[in-house]
Design a binder for these strands. Structure first.
Lengths: 185, 185
DNA sequence: AAGGTTATGTGAATGTGAACACAAGAACTA
DNA sequence: TAGTTCTTGTGTTCACATTCACATAACCTT
C-alpha cells in the first residue's frame, strides 16, 4: 500500500474491488492517460487524484449556476457534495417572486430574467432544475448567457448548439429502470 | 403520422430527432423486442408505450420506499415525476426524531428502525437518500427487509447480494463530468 | 544481492454497440 | 390497379470497449 517514499498507493485490483469492476479495466483506462502507476506497488493515490482532476478540468474551483429553486433546486443548493469536486454554486435563479431575494445556503436567489449576469460573472456551468415545460426556453437563455455546460434534471431532451454540452439525469427514469432487473414474484 | 385505423404513429426518424440519436438505432433496438412497427407508417404510439412498459415491468403501479428524508429526500417525496411511470412512494423513513411522524406529500415519515415493515408491505424498491456514511449499513437493512432494487443517491459503491440491483446516481459526479467537455478559455 | 512476489502496461482476442445500406412490405395517389 | 413514396427490419461493416494473458519492472525478504 505504501512505496519507498512513504506515499500511499492503491492497486488496480483494490480499486476494482471498491467500485465493482474488473482490474484490467482500471489499468487499461488509466494507461490511456500515460504511465500513472508503479509496477510492484500500484498507483500513488495523491498523484492519481490530481491526474483525474486535471483530466476532468476540475483543478480549480468551478463556478456553477442553479436555475429553478423548487424542491429539487433547494435540495441541490443545500447539497454538500459539490464541494468534494471543488464546485461553487455562484448564483441561483427562479421565476417566483416569493423566492426571489431569499437566501439559501448563503446564495441569493435572483430573478430569472437576470440570467445574462452569468456572462459577466464568467459562469460556464448551469444546473437546470425547472419544470419540463420551461426547460427548452430556459436553456436558450442560458446559452445566450454564455453557458457551455448544462446538468439537466428535467425529463426532456434539450436542443442546444454543438458547442454546448448537456448531461441529463432523469430521476424518475432511473427508478423506472429498476423493475426490469427484478424477477417477477 | 396516422394509419388506416386512425391510430397515431411515429416513425423512427421522428423519434430519433426528438431524442437526438440515429434513426437506425431506434429501429435496431426496437427490433430486439419483435415486430413492433408497420412499414410505411411507423410505430403505433400506444402499442409502443405498452410494449416498453411491459419490458420495464412497469405495467402495474410499483411501490417504492424512500429512505432518508433530508433535503434531497424531501425533494424526492414532493417530486411529481414518478407518477408518469406509475410509481407510488408507499413509505418514507428517517432517523431524526424531529422528522419522524411528520407527513410530506401525504406520506408519513417512519422511524428507520421499522424498515422491516417493507417486507409485509411487499415493497420491492427503495430510494436511498441518506448520507454516504450510513449508505452501506442502511442498504443491508433494506436487503434484509426484502428490497430487490435500490436507487442510490449517495456517492458510494454499495455492496449487495447478486439478486439485488443497484442503480447509483451521483449528482456531484455528473456535474464533475461537465468541465471535461468544455474547451478552456 | 538474489530470488520471489507483486502489480503495471499492453498486444491479441473477444464481445458489444452503432452506422450503413438496402430489400421487403405497407400506404397513398391517380 | 399500378406505380410511387415511405418506413421498417436486418445483414454487414465498422468502431469501440472489455477481457485475457503475459512480458516487464519495481518492490520486498532473507
Amino acid at each position: 500500500m505504501a512505496n519507498e517514499a512513504g506515499a500511499l498507493c492503491i492497486s488496480s485490483t483494490n480499486l476494482a474491488e471498491f467500485i465493482g469492476v474488473n482490474s484490467c479495466q482500471i489499468r487499461k483506462d488509466f494507461s490511456y492517460f500515460g504511465y500513472l502507476g508503479i509496477r510492484g506497488s500500484g498507483y500513488n493515490i495523491e498523484k492519481l487524484i490530481k491526474k483525474i482532476k486535471s483530466i476532468l478540468k476540475i483543478t480549480v474551483v468551478q463556478k456553477a449556476a442553479l436555475v429553478g429553486v423548487g424542491n429539487l433546486g433547494s435540495a441541490i443548493l443545500s447539497f454538500p457534495g459539490f464541494a468534494v469536486y471543488g464546485f461553487n454554486i455562484a448564483a441561483a435563479f427562479d421565476v417566483s417572486p416569493q423566492k426571489i431575494g431569499k437566501k439559501i445556503n448563503n446564495v441569493k436567489i435572483e430573478n430569472i430574467s437576470k440570467l445574462w449576469i452569468l456572462k459577466r460573472k464568467k459562469v460556464n456551468l448551469a444546473i437546470l432544475a425547472v419544470p419540463s415545460e420551461a426547460a427548452q426556453s430556459t436553456t436558450e437563455k442560458l446559452v445566450k448567457a454564455g453557458v457551455k455546460g448544462i446538468l439537466n434534471f428535467s425529463s426532456c431532451y434539450l436542443s442546444v448548439p454543438k458547442k454546448v454540452k448537456v448531461i441529463t439525469t432523469d430521476i424518475a427514469m432511473e427508478l423506472a429502470r429498476l423493475p426490469y432487473y427484478i424477477p417477477a414474484g
